[in-house]
Design a protein around this nucleic acid. Structure first.
Lengths: 232, 232
DNA sequence: GCCTGTCTTTGCGCTGGCGCAAACAAGATG
DNA sequence: CATCTTGTTTGCGCCAGCGCAAAGACAGGC
């Protein structure tokens, strides 16, 4: 599937459209190209020449990064209304991360010349992009600080809380993180190992702070987790 | 000192001016406000309401970030032609880091309304800002990956190499890092402790890779350091 | 309903790196 | 030149967290 996107879905909620008129909005969408990916597809690999920037319209992406030895970390999970690979639009570079769809995922892609042209017409787009990119810096700086200064289990708590805020849905038991998350995934997102994650979650389950299953986390006591994340 | 900046110095070298005409360039400078700080002055504190974005014209700034317990990391060092606190222009937020001058430092500051106005006139400014900010994301993502996956001494090697590229000056013995750097500073920049840095540097000095003194590092064998950083 | 593959748990031993303490070095000050 | 302050080195003990290994749990396919 590979069509022209039209004004629909949850698109208008994205930060990239803030302050744009209906016409500007439509022009932006018209220049983009809608693509739908099956679950577990790779949108792009870290190191490939960066051609397109993507807005997620529906579904969810996992962004990962490898070092020279092949060790992996998860940079983030992004969902509807969020952008990735903005680098492709402004630098002649390779993708900095690998993007993989978790579910069936629809994205809108723009290439560099089109977006540069659009920005010259509607500078508000650039301002919105700056807002989005600055948000990511904030996130990365925080997580960098945390991994440098805090204990592993604090960081695991912070990871769960972050994922809860992005993808939490209320259930009878507590707040379910609506992403299939293995212990390994949580480890890669927290800068630790699956063993340590498993031990830590077991302890929290005994405390009654969470309920966990196979690739599933329900947070039953967010307040306790916040407290723990901040004080250790 | 607090005057109107004029076209001089090394200003034109900054990424923010790329592709601007002489007039646009002048307009941008005209809206900014030049301020000179004595060594070891605080430009702004993390947590203060973010009012101004700064371009360093001369001198050098240290950017640091604290966590809830007061543990500190160094986010980076920036010199002439580089920007900080771009957040101030696009988010109604507080400063994410603390900025301190190392030497006597001249900066140009812009506030939000002026810069937004300028961008609407000259969208290329926004494109340049995006390039700058994306560069920082790249840096933070790399360092995040490194602190999650690599050994301390690899990270110390990478820190020295980064600082060498930013502030290295060739001398008879090797490449001198032209910043007063204590072991503590290197530790805060690498996510470790001053003791570990000291031990590691001692070992490298024995290997003949570096020569170090009080708050001073000369890299005598950069290639060996690169090799070590990548393979451990 | 059984089998297979993936995910999770937990015991156990090990080690990378932390951090105290104490001695030493190098500028700064007067 | 003597003193003071601030930075550096290194020995030593310790522990947070890693990672193997082996067993257990769960889900999906046929």
């Amino acid at each position: 599937m590979d069509t022209n996107p039209h004004q629909s879905d949850s698109l208008h909620q994205s930060e990239i459209f803030i302050g744009l008129t209906r016409e500007q909005n439509a022009a932006l969408l018209k220049e983009g190209r809608s693509i739908t990916f099956q679950p577990k597809s790779i949108l792009f690999h870290q190191g490939d020449p960066a051609k397109h920037c993507y807005l997620v319209n529906q579904g969810r992406l996992k962004l990962t990064k490898l070092n020279e030895q092949g060790r992996e970390v998860i940079i983030g999970y992004i969902g509807a209304g969020e952008l990735t690979a903005v680098t492709a639009l402004f630098k002649n570079r390779n993708y900095l991360v690998t993007a993989e769809s978790l579910e069936e995922t629809e994205v809108i892609g723009w290439d560099k010349p089109k977006m540069i042209h659009l920005i010259h017409q509607y500078p508000d787009i650039a301002i919105n992009l700056l807002g989005i990119v600055l948000e990511r810096i904030d996130d990365m700086q925080h997580r960098y600080l945390e991994v440098c200064t805090e204990y592993v289990d604090q960081r695991i708590a912070r990871s769960l809380l972050r994922l809860m805020r992005r993808a939490g849905s209320k259930t009878r038991d507590g707040i379910l993180i609506d992403i299939a998350l293995s212990r390994q995934n949580i480890a890669d997102y927290s800068g630790t190992t699956l063993y340590t994650v498993s031990r830590t979650l077991s302890a929290w389950e005994k405390n009654g702070w969470i309920k966990s299953g196979r690739e599933q986390i329900v947070i039953t006591n967010p307040h306790a987790l916040v407290q723990f994340a901040e004080t250790g």
